[in-house]
Design a protein around this nucleic acid. Structure first.
Length: 731
DNA sequence: CGTGCGTCGATTTTT
DNA sequence: TCGACGCACG
């Protein structure tokens, strides 16, 4: 047990060994968050305070869940079988499978991924003859998901205008369609589970009693419904106290508001649960001092923060290298040159990341890397289970498991082509609407040509179902690939395209094999053992973003995708106004602050070297744009940077009173000389002012009698104060 | 039923 | 500029 705590710092130890109470851990970037989370569980178990069966550990991504499990199994020699650990969606799936009757679902309900959901909505709009110009499917999808993520059913939406009322009606139609087809989308998994727990007292109490400790990773990313879900599970009653909630997160790394994340949950949690323990993990084990100082200085400009400052004992390291190029092309050339020089100096390509705000920026970089013959890998493409050929194969499997799955039906009825035209499908959809049945079930009700065209397909599915009954999953998959004609179809494609798709189909069989190996106990007596579970797995875990793990390649990705990762050297390109911060963010509430958090995430990815670059002009949407450098660059104290291009390190025009800025040669930075001028104050430091209250020093300039500092007083705003005049006390 | 061309749009994305 | 998607044609 002492081993567990041996290499933890005092704050980490404190977090791990807290008494069984609610806790909020504010874990800065690189502060050992996952470690604390897993060690907390291990410690509770080892000290006999917690049975593994009573643990519920929630993450957002499968990757994080797997990592936690892997680390935990190293720490704990015992079986972790009884532990509930997984993503919100994975856990909800598990709950709904176990209680499908109570949740109003058939045992073999299917899960729609986003693409399936969109297809389903398009189909709905078509059958209802809705003008998709006025109600774009994507927007409707977003509307529906947003409602569900707030925990709001169609019947409960408050609509005050015709447009909204119509969308709500479509939301209701969509709900009905899903129910009829026995499918649930991602948001539905959460909402359905939440409703199950709310309405069904025995089930609710069972889990409320079972889970004694609930641990949440990336708590700042939870949405409204997820937080309510957690609250519900952590509630006790007269007989049993509620579970202890242990939430780990970082408000400064909250970058997913656009998809419903609600940072406010952190404050709400602290308030509503009267959290007695708020612990800050501020010691950073990843980056050198200069990088952390830059990150601290940038994020200090945000007003609504819980407050945190990263530090390290590793020394200041190298300066942040800044380069201003003439064009985006020059910028890319420079980046690739630097990459090559790092590689020449012995750095492994895989330890180098090229980050950007938006995907479009990767093209120039890729082009230059390709020309220079540097191997690279771009994150963010299609994932395995999202590939067309794989989805087709899965659609056949889905129809075998659940013939009512109209999305699957519509997808493969005529793929490979078997003479089912648009007319036949239309006739079928109309008929299905009148009979209020599934496409599959309606075929016998048809007559004439459509029936003739569709009957063979239904017969094929029936045949496949019978032939695969009782077969082990991989063999069933294999059989479906042949019986459906998919394999022959891709075999006939000449191009390398077809070849690749065939390989992916083979890969699907391997995936089925792996799945069977990892899930040894199939549901007894099922006709198609593990099939439904495999399909759920395919929807919930779309697979890696193209692995190729062994290859030593430079990594290209958006800043969002880089969250949680770290690299020896990080290149951040396109640090320009309009791009980063992105111009669209100006229209969103607190958009700039979210962009700044994104910048903070980007900077804190670097272990040893950080390169920041920008271009004076950039090709965007086929037009040349002239760029001003990002305000975020100016928020980095000058003393931390080293300009590699002959650009002036000072913005031409300063926003304050339009005056030209004084050169900031003597700017304060966290570590370094002019501290004396400021009476020992540093950037990032919290100070007290008689009138404005407590604030954080954000930047400083001038010296001697002119020395002044910019202080962020949160709600009171940002102020420039003369050091000689203002009375400031460190807090 | 598949192909070719024109139009339109263009942050970030996991489950 | 590039790509995805929808529609018209063979």
């Amino acid at each position: 047990m002492a081993d567990l705590l041996a290499s933890l710092n005092p704050e980490q130890t404190q977090a791990v060994t807290l008494p069984p109470q609610h806790a909020l851990i504010l874990a800065g970037a690189g502060s050992g968050k996952t470690r604390v989370l897993t060690t907390r569980i291990a410690w509770l178990v080892e000290t006999g305070q917690l049975d593994p069966h009573a643990v519920l550990a929630v993450t957002f991504t499968n990757k994080a869940a797997k990592e936690m499990l892997a680390r935990l199994s190293v720490m704990l020699p015992i079986s972790l079988r009884g532990m509930w650990m997984g993503t919100f969606h994975g856990l909800c799936n598990r709950l709904l499978r176990a209680h499908h009757k109570d949740a109003g679902l058939p045992a073999l309900f299917q899960i729609l991924d986003s693409a399936d959901q969109l297809a389903s909505i398009k189909r709905l709009l078509k059958t209802l003859n809705v003008d998709d110009e006025k109600y774009p499917p994507r927007e409707l999808q977003h509307f529906i998901n947003a409602q569900k993520e707030q925990g709001v059913r169609a019947a409960a939406v408050e609509a005050y205008d015709d447009f909204t009322r119509r969308r709500v009606a479509l939301y209701a139609e969509y709900e009905a369609q899903c129910q009829r087809e026995s499918v649930v989308d991602f948001a539905e998994l959460l909402l359905r589970t939440y409703e199950l727990l709310t309405r069904n007292e025995p089930v609710r109490r069972h889990y409320q009693r079972r889970f004694r400790h609930i641990l949440v990773d990336e708590f700042q990313d939870t949405n409204v419904l997820q937080y309510r879900w957690l609250k519900l599970l952590a509630t006790g009653d007269a007989d049993t106290p509620g579970a202890c909630l242990f939430c780990v997160g970082d408000d400064d790394q909250s970058i997913y508001r656009f998809r419903g994340a609600e940072v406010g949950n952190m404050l709400a949690f602290e308030r509503e649960f009267k959290v007695p323990n708020v612990i800050r993990l501020e010691q950073n084990y990843r980056s050198c001092g200069n990088i952390l100082d830059a990150a601290n200085a940038i994020i200090a400009h945000n007003t609504q923060r819980l407050g945190k400052q990263l530090w390290t004992d590793r020394g200041e390291g190298e300066p942040i290298r800044v380069y201003q190029a003439f064009t985006d092309l020059d910028e890319a050339r420079w980046v690739v040159d630097e990459v090559q020089s790092l590689v020449r100096d012995g750095m492994s390509r895989a330890d180098i990341a090229l980050l950007y705000r938006s995907n479009a920026q990767s093209r120039v970089l890729e082009h230059q890397l390709f020309s220079a013959g540097v191997s690279y890998r771009v994150y963010g493409g299609l994932r395995f289970f999202e590939r067309q050929e794989v989805k087709h194969a899965l659609a056949y499997l889905r129809l075998i498991a659940n013939p009512d799955d109209d999305t699957a039906f519509a997808r493969v009825a005529n793929f490979p082509t078997r003479g089912i035209g648009a007319r036949s499908m239309e006739a079928l959809q109309d008929a299905a609407r009148t009979f209020n049945g599934s496409l599959y079930g309606t075929v016998p009700h048809l007559s004439g040509k459509p029936r003739k065209a569709l009957e063979p397909f239904v017969a094929l599915i029936e045949q496949l179902r019978q032939q695969t009954a009782g077969l082990p999953l991989p063999e069933a998959v294999e059989h479906v690939l042949d019986g459906s004609g998919l394999r022959v179809h891709y075999l006939s494609l000449k191009e390398k395209d077809g070849r690749e798709r065939l390989e992916n189909l083979d890969e699907l069989i391997s995936a089925a094999n792996n799945f069977v190996a990892e899930n040894e106990a199939p549901t007894a007596g099922a006709d198609h053992p593990l099939l439904a579970d495999f399909l759920a797995h395919a929807s919930l875990e779309a697979g890696d973003h193209q692995a190729d793990a062994g290859e030593d390649a430079v990594q290209l990705m958006t800043v969002h995708a880089a969250k949680g990762l770290e690299f020896d050297a990080v290149f951040l390109s396109g640090v320009e106004e309009g791009l980063f911060p992105h111009e669209n963010s100006a229209r969103e509430v607190d958009g700039l602050e979210e962009e700044r958090r994104l910048m903070y995430v980007a900077v804190t990815r670097a272990r040893r070297r950080l390169y920041v670059s920008l271009a004076q002009s950039r090709m965007l949407h086929g037009q040349t744009r002239y760029c001003v450098r990002s305000r975020f660059l100016d928020e980095i104290p000058v003393g931390l940077t080293k300009w590699l291009s002959p650009a002036q390190p000072v913005r031409a025009v300063q926003e304050r009173s339009g005056a030209y800025a004084t050169p900031r040669a003597s700017s304060v930075h966290a570590r370094g000389a002019p501290a004396r001028d400021l009476g020992g104050l540093r950037i990032g430091q919290a100070v007290q002012h008689a009138r404005f209250g407590v604030g954080t020093i954000v930047s400083a300039e001038g010296s001697g009698a002119d020395a002044r500092v910019q202080i962020n007083f949160g709600p009171q705003g940002m102020k420039w104060l003369l050091l000689g005049v203002a009375k400031l006390d460190p807090v």
